[in-house]
Amino acid sequence: MSDSQGAYFIPEPSRWPIVGTLALFVSFIGAAVMLNGSGFGTFIFGIGIAMVIYMFAGWFADVIGESLKGLYSDQVDVSFRWGMGWFILSEVMFFAAFFGALFYARVLSVPWLGGEGAGGIATHEFLWPSFEASWPLDVMPDPANFMVFEEVIPAFGLPAVNTLLLLSSGVTVTFAHWALKKDNRSGLCCWLFATVLLGFTFVACQAYEYYEAYHHMGLTLRSGIYGSTFFMLTGFHGFHVIMGATMLLVILIRSMKGHFSEKHHFAFEGVAWYWHFVDVVWLGLFIFVYWL
């Protein structure tokens, strides 16, 4: 980076890392106590989450302040790019674990329980000889501890609408980026607003879908491996959409305040990358969880 010769940027000592650590520590203790069945844990967890939000607000306020002061050279910008890129890869790998569980159940464990393959014969015979494999697995090998569901969410209903919503939001965020690169402020804000709206509409549709599944289909987290993979995959994805849409909202507010320039707007791009990642994960979900 030729323009940063002799002038590196090193941030001042900061209290946010230790605040963030304490926030996560309190949240984890709260969640653990809560799971062990004490109501007091919920209270601690609430405090922890409030601290996490405080940390994010404070830390990002510092970063935004430094950025507005022009302290960030092109080199810092590139560091942020590497950081965001590899963070997204780590998120991809987190989802990969759950997709792996889905594929393993569909291709291996359920057929084995049903008696398929050399190993499956004994598994089937000795465990649940009357079990018949199917997917979606609506009758569990041993239904005693699991809820039996009547139907699953059809792919070409609400999920297809959701696919359309998210894909369009990917387009609108790109339009917003083009507007920003042409320094078209009103275009930027309008397209960003549309993106945020599409994102939250998606979340609302998911919430409605969950309501239907729980109340009218008997499909819950307790519905055996189908319910487990369905809700964990779509649930973590939904959580990421909420995070992404919130990040977009922050970017929208910053855009309205006049932050960012045509050349210097990594915060926008980082969030846009994240949004596309959420989009791509959804495509995987739509194909492998809902459709096939």
Partner: peptide
């Protein structure tokens, strides 16, 4: 991801690692 699945198996009734619900 793996330990999250353990957590939900224990506390939220998922069946990732429970053959009775189709897991393994």
């Amino acid at each position: 991801g793996a330990v999250t699945m353990l957590l939900t198996d224990k506390f939220f009734g998922t069946a990732f690692f429970n053959a009775a619900g189709g897991g393994d």
